[in-house]
């Protein structure tokens, strides 16, 4: 276990270093004037790269992680946006695990046409682009509003309703994924000896499923949680982007120079905020690692309890 933690720590450090190295790649804009035209060219300048890196390292050495473009500490920035995202992720994970398990139970418990098609839908959906599905869902909801369905806020992060809507959208794909995992793990238990024995003794199928199959499958299910989580993070960007949820992904996306621009704003390159990118990416990496470690610890606990 200790080796595992050390290994994870080492990996984490490597990742952060890679992020810093990438984020500070020089994109120095040089303005070239030709006749009456002026345009910017991004150049690669190794010396500048060194300077930027050492500047950054020196800043960290001085105890600061940098500032955003308004001169506020990136940590304050991170705190604001990341806490929103964390709440969203939390709610979505709970929904995903709950719905996923319920669906898996339904799919394995029943063999009818509904269960089978529910299963197929679950598998098929994973092959679809999430953003397309989200757009379609949005359109359907907007259409419902026009039909007189009570309106609620679809965009942003201020209202409870938009928050929940985003959480539901976010949980959509992970719960399908989770349901598939749980279902196939449950099924892999199917043929095992103790089940046949229990069935023979007339134990109810639902009891069997929950008390035995699920309990037995728990370790392997928990092992899948980090993957589901990665899934969730990937979806998070799309959800935040499409619902204008001002969370950490959205902020990272902004810091990468993507702003809603209008005629009067400046070109995007000028908005790239390297320290912000580094901090947010580190945040997401750390999240990944934490979930990874958490799932490992959980697995260990569960297995140990079962062994004892």
């Amino acid at each position: 276990m200790r080796i595992f933690l050390l290994q994870q720590l080492f990996l984490w450090v490597c990742m952060v270093v890679v992020v810093v190295l990438i984020a500070f790649l020089p994109r120095d804009l040089v303005f070239v004037s030709e006749e009456y035209e002026t345009y910017g060219i991004a150049t690669m300048n190794m010396q500048l790269y060194g300077e930027r890196l050492s500047e950054y390292v020196a800043m960290i050495g001085a105890g600061s992680l940098g500032e955003n473009r308004y001169g506020t500490s990136v940590l304050v920035d991170l705190h604001l946006y990341a806490s929103r995202s964390l709440q969203l992720i939390g709610i979505a994970s709970i929904i995903a695990i709950f719905i996923g398990t319920a669906k898996a139970y339904f799919d394995t418990r029943y063999k009818g046409i509904f269960a089978r098609s529910s299963r197929k839908i679950g598998q098929g959906m994973q092959a679809l682009p999430d953003f397309f599905i989200i757009i379609v869902v949005q359109m359907v909801v907007l259409w419902l509003f026009r039909q007189g369905f009570p309106q609620f806020s679809l965009y942003g992060n201020e209202d409870l309703s938009s928050f929940l809507f985003a959480a539901v959208l976010l949980s959509l794909f992970p719960s399908m994924y989770f349901a598939n995992i749980v279902a196939s793990t449950l099924e892999s238990e199917e043929g095992s000896f103790y089940l046949i024995a229990a069935k023979g003794r007339g134990v109810k199928k639902s009891v069997l499923l929950i008390k035995h199959q699920l309990a037995n499958a728990l370790p392997s299910i928990i092992q899948q949680i980090p993957i589901m989580f990665m899934y969730l993070l990937s979806n998070l960007l799309m959800v935040e982007f499409l619902t204008s949820f001002r969370g950490a992904m959205y902020r990272t996306y902004q810091a990468m120079g993507f702003q809603e621009t209008s005629l009067e704003s400046l070109p995007n390159q000028f908005y790239i905020e390297e320290p912000v990118i580094v901090v947010y990416l580190t945040f997401f990496i750390s999240l990944g690692f934490l979930v990874n470690i958490g799932s490992r610890v959980m697995t260990e606990i569960v297995t140990r309890r079962r062994l004892s």
């Binding site: 907007l142 309106q151 679809l154 965009y155 942003g156 209202d159 938009s162 619902t243 809603e260």
Partner: peptide, 23 residues
């Protein structure tokens, strides 16, 4: 400060009361 893409939706749902200059 809201995305250009969603501002109209926000207006319809009443989350935003006014959309103003310059854009």
């Amino acid at each position: 400060v809201r995305d250009q893409a969603v501002i109209t939706g926000l207006l319809e749902s009443g989350d935003v009361d006014m959309v103003i200059q310059p854009d």
